[in-house]
Design a protein around this nucleic acid. Structure first.
Lengths: 224, 224
DNA sequence: TAGATTGTTAATCGATTAACAATC
DNA sequence: TAGATTGTTAATCGATTAACAATC
């Protein structure tokens, strides 16, 4: 799993904020590429995202030397490098756990699949949902999680169960050897340090928006 | 709209990170209250969320003095104060714009309504969707946005249209006088500084998760 | 009172921005 | 060469943590 090219010699872990911006850079680069642009400067790349040129260069420099002084960055080359750094130069077999309204919608959401996150199995504990089919996949009981995980090589889980069930299900997920959880349940999850968790909390986002509106603070906040 | 109690004398705007944590505090306080707890200390409050006691006190102190030395915080009182600070002590009439898979799911998502964000109108430009009903609301054409906004007093918009349409629709939203946008489209929006935007970018979150898994960085990242 | 816990100040840490020599 | 732009160092800024007098 270790990869000498993914991290600079110092081997320091990239700050959280850097990774978020790298995702944005990648998407902007893909847009510029679609328009036939061969190279891009740090100031061009940042301008579209409201990020300064020094910040762009510093972020990219964290992972290696990708630029050409006087020229900028070759878009195709940088896209390949960033996809590799972010780990989306591969397929991630992913389980969707919890098939309420949000879970069912997320199954159909195209943005995941186009980035390599393939939902390969659905889980829920509601007997009424068992055997239902969504997007060609059959809903399985949670007790099948361990077996299905090894059968299908599942590596990530998207968790959209009710808050009360979240920790219990997270424990099951961890026990199966799944290494990452995208958590939509509005509770912090307790997992071993070897397991990655990213929390997406829609109410928190909307509350932040309400605060900004009330306090007349405009502008763009990128929450990921 | 200005409210002398919402901000401390200095009138400084709360840092982004503080607001995010305040949302988490509020939810934790509500959980503690359901268990009948009357007061809570900063270390208790932080412990459940993985946040240090000094950080909790500093965050809360930003908005005023809520604690009692030797005792902690009175939960009921602090909940009321935080709801007020976040602006969720009221109803926010909200428009859902874009009724793809994600938009339709978000209509049904309970987490919004329970926080005071009431979806009162649906908009889409697809003629096939016009007149459809979801959760008791009829889909309207976007050209009705301005009229409906003033009729229903709409204040916020949840934007879940395709990336290509996002900026154009955002311009329409702004023109109607709506003051906040929760943006699910994977593009940065350009709006006047008087309009608040919070971006929710699911692919960015998942990419971050992939990075963490590949680089063996575990733990919990709260993205809001 | 003694024990607990706050609000706040000072110290530390990390992240962003500015500046510029090196490079194409 | 002259102009453009990088990668990196130093300076600035902001956020977190630690410590503690004040308070109940």
């Amino acid at each position: 799993m270790a990869d000498p090219l993914r991290q600079p010699p110092g081997d320091k872990l990239a700050p959280k904020a850097v990774i978020g911006r790298v995702s944005l850079y990648l998407r902007q680069l893909e847009a510029s590429q679609r328009q036939g642009q061969p190279t891009i400067s740090s100031s061009q790349l940042g301008a579209a995202l409201g990020i300064g040129d020094a910040q762009v260069r510093k972020d990219l420099a964290f992972f290696g030397q990708f630029g050409y002084p006087g020229i900028g960055y070759r878009i195709e080359e940088l896209i390949a490098a960033l996809r590799r750094i972010l780990g989306i130069d591969r397929i991630w077999p992913t389980a969707m756990i919890g098939l309420g309204n949000l879970g069912r919608a997320l199954i159909k959401y195209r943005g995941f699949r186009s980035r390599g996150f393939h939902i390969v199995a659905l889980f829920d504990n509601d007997p009424k949902k068992m055997g239902q089919t969504h997007s060609g996949l059959t809903v399985r009981p949670l007790e099948d999680l361990a077996r299905t995980t090894s059968e299908l090589g599942i590596e990530l889980a998207i968790l959209s169960v009710p808050a009360e069930a979240a920790q219990r299900v997270a424990d099951q997920i961890v026990a199966c050897g799944i290494l990452g959880i995208l958590n939509f349940a509005p509770v912090p999850l307790n997992v071993p340090p070897t397991v990655g968790v990213m929390a997406v909390d829609l109410s928190v986002q909307l509350e932040h928006l309400a605060y900004k509106v009330l306090n007349g603070q405009g502008g763009i906040s990128h929450a990921g």
